[in-house]
Amino acid sequence: MKSRRSFSAKTYAAVNYAALGLLSLFTLYPFWYEAASSFSSSRAITSGEVFLWPVEFNTDAYKRLLDDGQLLVSAKNTVLVTVVGTLLNMAMTVLAAYPLSKKRLMGRGGLLLFITFTMLFVSGMIPNFILIKTLGLINSYWSLWLPALISTYNLFVMKSFFEGLPEEIDESASIDGANDLAILAKIILPLSKPILAALSLFYAVGWWNSYFQVLLYITRSTKQTLMVKLYQMINQVDASLLNSAGGSEGASQALLTPEAIKAAAIVLSVTPILCVYPFLQRHFVKGVLIGSVKG
């Protein structure tokens, strides 16, 4: 009886492991393909010879990309935008989510409706631009950070997480005389590591990939971010622009980026942010680990 059971548990685990492994190979492929392409010759890519491994291996694409000093400047800018942006986001989201998770708060329903409304009714590009201009934020990174201080989506996720924490915790703390700020800082936040990690990741990825806002508000080349630089290389020619009925710049005006360089630009833009999650992941397993060590 016992051995049968452990046998079925083993098959169960094996199937699970295998299925996950297979799926992850599927999802890795696009990146793998781009990485292989970035070390191949553009000729081999166009000729459809690259599939799993680089063909005509070379590192010219990376050399060309890294030769441009602007890329390093923009990478630094992106790190700054991402780190500061994420910190501001997390601070504001906690400030919003914690009080709103308290059922006892007067006016809570109204406030939540007030906030939900902005999640769906989004204002257009032009009024936003005028606002940023009026505040004098053009060409300052505050033009990116301030309008995006809170993602309402993330706010609701965090609020619902706080609501899921056992109520006895802060009840007992408030009996001990701690005020709400102290409860939040000393008790709630340490308990919320998984969600803090997850939302930091969401925010950071958003900042890392932010593109359109940067185009709109940051005109100074020295403040440009990595994504804008790389996008310029990847999407240099938009077919729809070339074929506008009203006249176009002509085939020879636009510089076509070789395939290998596009691939290298993609690899360079994706790799750093892919590496963030593994660091955050350890905050995910704390709770589970205690209970499942003996698995």
């Binding site: 441009d68 000093g69 400047v73 310029q232």
Partner: peptide
């Protein structure tokens, strides 16, 4: 802006 001006 086509991103063609190098930092130099």
């Amino acid at each position: 802006d086509r991103g063609e001006v190098s930092a130099e």
